[in-house]
């Protein structure tokens, strides 16, 4: 696998993404929903009659739980879209080595996810914090760099998790039918429901939400997780790696 060979496959994967409107839309929506809804939340939490949010970082990243749904669709389409559109045979005819094909896809998807995540997180952060005015925080405040970095990692990893699941199921519709309800319920706080918490807190989105200050005040035993913020990111990373490995095994073994 020479560098030039891999580069060719990555470039072609990038072409596949920009040459189809649906994938471009998912990326645009990720930014638009996160920033727009974040501005709305921050607006509701500021103003003369309001005391301001208990945690300004909650206001910064709460909207990502909705914006993530769009980038998860992107992640599912990266591999899954080839099966629904029927291009998978052409792709594997052009790049018959499954490992090379999968590597090229993941490098392209990761690159795009990182860029979109960083843009989304930074723009959302600055927009929400300026809306909060005096109650807002700046990048140099304590705990903020970790939360911002964590949010970028979160969006990237959740995208790759969806990519891996779609590669295992070989069907983007089925993938989204499973993942979107789970992530949507996660946004509704399912990780904190007393009976479910011991299990639900280890779900990929829940594990990653702690570092973004979305899991509630950790000094309150009702919200407290059994792991720390970076361990949470690690748990999400393990989910993503497991899904990606599973996707690779399916692609290597099954007929196209």
């Amino acid at each position: 696998m020479s560098v030039a060979t891999v580069r060719g496959v990555v470039v072609s994967e990038w072409t596949k993404v920009w040459s189809v409107p649906s994938t471009l839309w998912t990326l645009l929506l990720t930014v638009a929903v996160s920033v727009g809804f974040g501005r709305f939340v921050a607006g509701a939490l500021s103003g003369p009659d309001v005391q301001g949010p208990a945690d300004p970082l909650f206001a910064a990243f709460y909207s990502l739980t909705f914006g993530q749904l769009a980038i998860v669709v992107f992640g599912a389409l990266v591999v899954g879209g080839e099966y629904s559109a029927g291009t998978i045979r052409a792709s594997l005819s052009a790049v018959p080595r499954r490992g090379l094909f999968y590597t090229g896809k993941l490098l392209a998807a990761t690159g795009i996810a990182v860029v979109v995540s960083v843009v989304t997180v930074f723009v959302t952060f600055f927009v929400t914090q300026s809306a909060l005015g005096v109650n807002g925080v700046t990048l140099s405040d304590e705990g903020v760099p970790a939360a911002v970095a964590g949010a970028c990692l979160y969006l990237t990893l959740i995208t790759l998790f969806a990519t891996g699941v779609a590669a295992m199921l070989r069907n983007p519709t089925l993938t989204l039918g499973i993942l979107l309800p789970i992530f949507f319920l996660g946004a509704q706080g399912v990780g904190n429901v007393p009976g479910l918490k011991s299990f639900a807190q280890y779900l990929p989105d829940q594990a990653g939400s702690l570092i973004m200050h979305l899991a509630g005040p950790q000094d309150d035993p009702r919200w407290a997780r059994d792991y720390g913020p970076w361990t949470g990111v690690g748990i999400l990373a393990l989910w993503a790696i497991a899904a990606l490995v599973g996707g690779y095994l399916v692609m290597r073994r099954r007929d196209a």
């Binding site: 060719g8 496959v9 470039v11 072609s12 994967e13 072409t15 596949k16 040459s19 189809v20 409107p21 649906s22 879209g81 559109a85 029927g86 291009t87 045979r89 052409a90 792709s91 052009a94 790049v95």
Partner: peptide, 18 residues
């Protein structure tokens, strides 16, 4: 084996790039 929303040129372009 074509994506309905992709142009003929872009279909051949990604194939060529691989």
């Amino acid at each position: 084996g074509l994506h309905k929303r992709r142009s003929a040129y872009n279909h051949l372009l990604w194939l060529a790039q691989t």
